[in-house]
Computed example of a mutant assay.
Amino acid sequence: MSTCSATQNLHPSLVMSKRRKFVIAVLFCMSAVAVIAFLAHRQDPEPAYAGHPLSFWVEILGRRSPPWGDTQGATNAIAHIGPASLPLLLKWIQHEPAQWRDKLAAPLKRLPYEWTHWLSACIAQERSEQLAIGTYEAFHILGTRATPALEDLSRLMNATNATATSARATENLGCLGTNALAALLAVIQDPRHPRQWQAVAAVGSMPDMGDAAKLSVPAIIACIGNTNDETLSLMAVNVIGRLRAAPDLSVPALVCCLQSTNAIIRISSAEAIAAFGTQATSAIPALTNMLTDPDPELRDCAAKTLHEIAPSTFTNVPPPHHID
């Protein structure tokens, strides 16, 4: 009896010991996070707008679910702060997510306490992720005013060992307009570069390219025929349609894609041809053949495109209809 009693008496102390260790570990982590945040704040004083630091506004832009916050205020803030925001944007873009952080944070997030949720978010670097995502909107707002970041963004784009950073840098280069065209075309023309399709997308996102659009067409057309990477091929087709440049080169390349075994690429090619309007009449024979395709969506897309590029000639083509 005495032995059993002694054993039972040990349990509360053992439990308390484990709890103390857990509390000490949590407090240590919280202290470490607080110290790191404090030092980071001291090292990188932020420009501010309307009483809030730059990170406050960029974090709003990076949120992917409601409530988003004052997005108009964030837009005004980035526009007001201007190129002075670039050093911090270039820092925040370099966040690389780590699986071990998510695994460590998950148990804390399940506990019903606000402080454990806060600690979980700190460990998982949720705020860093939001800031990294928000940099795209910030660069988009700045537009060509962000050109001083061209060299750094190009370097980060080509640092492909940092996957997330490289992808974000490629995407953000498109916000700089034609100033970034040479850097993006160099990636598009390199079949070994893992950011090829993102570079094509970045060129397609550029506003008001003017004559520079024609310079992009040959490199993007070369990506269309990449049968080993259908994501790249599909992106190239869509961007050619957005650019609507050099129809003498673009339309024949898109007509070739109408023969693809991938139905999505065929539909996207027909839609891209439609964007060229009456400049795409050389595609009429191939589109006419599509009117007898067994796929009703392809037939409908071909009819719609024919009405766009030759409305007076193809009055007898059945008008396109909505497919549920």
Score class of each variant (00 low, 15 high):
residue 285 P to G: 07
residue 203 V to D: 00
residue 258 L to I: 11
residue 36 I to S: 06
residue 305 T to A: 12
residue 281 T to Q: 14
residue 176 L to D: 00
residue 275 A to E: 13
residue 160 T to Q: 10
residue 8 Q to Y: 06
residue 75 T to I: 12
residue 204 G to W: 03
residue 6 A to Y: 02
residue 247 P to F: 08
residue 2 S to V: 05
residue 294 P to Y: 07
residue 252 P to H: 11
residue 124 A to L: 09
residue 136 Y to H: 09
residue 229 D to G: 07
residue 134 G to Y: 05
residue 134 G to M: 04
residue 136 Y to P: 02
residue 141 I to C: 06
residue 139 F to R: 01
residue 64 R to V: 10
residue 102 D to Y: 10
residue 176 L to F: 02
residue 43 Q to Y: 01
residue 268 S to I: 11
residue 179 N to D: 05
residue 205 S to K: 13
residue 222 A to V: 09
residue 237 V to M: 02
residue 300 D to H: 08
residue 22 F to L: 14
residue 138 A to G: 08
residue 300 D to P: 11
residue 314 F to M: 09
residue 85 S to F: 04
residue 37 A to L: 13
residue 127 R to M: 08
residue 18 K to R: 11
residue 201 A to W: 00
residue 211 D to Q: 15
residue 310 A to R: 05
residue 288 T to P: 06
residue 155 R to P: 08
residue 103 K to T: 02
residue 93 I to Y: 01
residue 260 S to N: 15
residue 113 Y to T: 13
residue 17 S to Q: 10
residue 63 R to N: 08
residue 114 E to T: 11
residue 295 D to I: 15
residue 185 L to H: 03
residue 45 P to T: 01
residue 268 S to L: 09
residue 314 F to P: 06
residue 135 T to V: 06
residue 107 P to M: 03
residue 251 V to Q: 04
residue 262 N to D: 15
residue 273 I to Q: 14
residue 186 A to C: 00
residue 53 P to Y: 00
residue 271 E to L: 15
residue 124 A to C: 07
residue 176 L to W: 01
residue 200 V to C: 01
residue 287 L to W: 14
